[in-house]
Amino acid sequence: MTGVVRWAFAGLLAVLAFGLASVVLQIPGTGSALRSQVMAQLPQSGVDHAVTAVLLNFRGYDTFLELVVLLLALFGAWGLSDSIDEAPLDTDIDVLTELVAFLVPVLIVVAAYLLWVGAYSPGGAFQGGAVLAGAGVLLSLCDPGWRSRRVERIGEVLLVPGVLVFLLVGLASMLLGGQFLEYPRDMAGSLILLVEGFAMLSIAVTLHTLFAGTPRFGGGA
């Protein structure tokens, strides 16, 4: 792109940004949008934190599909995983090894705490899963082969239960006479914790697999 075209492009975008900014200022912003409805139904949702209630109950279907997106990205990356030579990492660093040995157990505890605390304050499956995946990434930086030696089979098996447990809970609520994902009211809290627990593990393993690359799973050729 030549300089003139760049400036013209920048100018066009500036005009569009200015226009859109003036539109945003005209959004009424009055009323409470869905806040009052969320708050009114919160006691029925099984959790005390409004965002978790929206994520896992009121709009739980979005979260269900979000787990499908993660799985899809993994399948897609898997289809692209052949024959990339990655530069070997320099893993022989004492500070890194010491730090990781200290941090990984802490991160596991933090992840579990985030999952549990999500019921009544900010936190939840994705946050916990991301922290757990971060612990896995740290381990891979020190020792790229740790998963294939230690937990490869477990890692594979943990990719799908996030979606599957969510799906089974949804089906169970249909069999009990409700709609898909309509949890029975008195069990909602425990079902959400169950769904989130498996979601956290699958999110962590999926994110780590996407980082570590070259997953070799899926049975024979």
Binding site: L34, Q37, V38, Q41, N57, F58, R59, G60, Y61, D62, G178, Q179, F180, L181, E182, Y183
Partner: peptide
């Protein structure tokens, strides 16, 4: 229609 989660719009999907 099928209200996923049993809530119905606008709260649910």
């Amino acid at each position: 229609q099928h209200s996923v989660g049993g809530w119905g719009a606008p709260l649910g999907i």
